[in-house]
Every structure is written in C-alpha cells, then in structure tokens.
C-alpha cells in the first residue's frame, strides 16, 4: 500500500504511522457532555468502504487526512491536516 503525503507525494506505507479516524481532529470542548467524549474517543462509523483517517508521515512530520477504501486499500486522496475540511 502506498499513501499520499501532501508534501512528498506517493510514499511507501512503511513511512507512515496510523492514528485512526480523522474525527480525532474534532475534539469536543472540555466541558462537553460525556456522550460527546464517548463518541470522540470510542465510537466509530467503521465503514466498509471510503474512510477519512489521520496518518503521520514520519520523514517530513506532516499530519495528513487520507481518504482510503477499507475494502480495497485504494487511496483516493489526501490533504494536510491543518488545511483539511473539518
């Protein structure tokens, strides 16, 4: 599997670290209800198909939001996390 780094282009999977669903970018307010934290920390859509997830490109230090198909491992695109749609 090869993934897209927004800076470096297509790179081998070995260069990346996976950090789970991109909802990690949507951190609730500190005072949010327990249910919001439960959704953030634990519950997942877990799609069989297209998903958006966070990958860290170890060599250049970029956090990327990668769109990937969990059935085929096909990578559809990626954006720098800082610029990604939330």
């Amino acid at each position: 599997m090869r993934l897209d780094c927004p800076h470096c282009g297509k790179r081998d999977r070995r260069e990346f670290t996976y950090r789970g669903d991109a909802l990690a970018l949507l951190r609730p307010d500190p005072g949010a209800e327990a249910a919001a934290w439960d959704d953030y920390l634990h519950n997942r859509d877990n799609p069989a198909g297209l998903t958006r997830e966070l990958w860290y490109h170890d060599p250049c230090g970029t956090w990327a939001v990668v769109e990937r198909d969990t059935l085929t491992h096909h990578v559809a695109g990626s954006q720098a996390a800082a610029e990604a749609d939330r």
Partner: peptide, 13 residues
C-alpha cells in the same frame, strides 16, 4: 497491520 481494513489480506511490511 495497524490500519482499518475489511480486506481479508494484509500488506507486506
């Protein structure tokens, strides 16, 4: 393999 997947096959690394 450490990433979400429904493919019943893994990767080389």
């Amino acid at each position: 393999d450490l990433y979400a997947s429904y493919a019943a096959r893994g990767n080389l690394p």
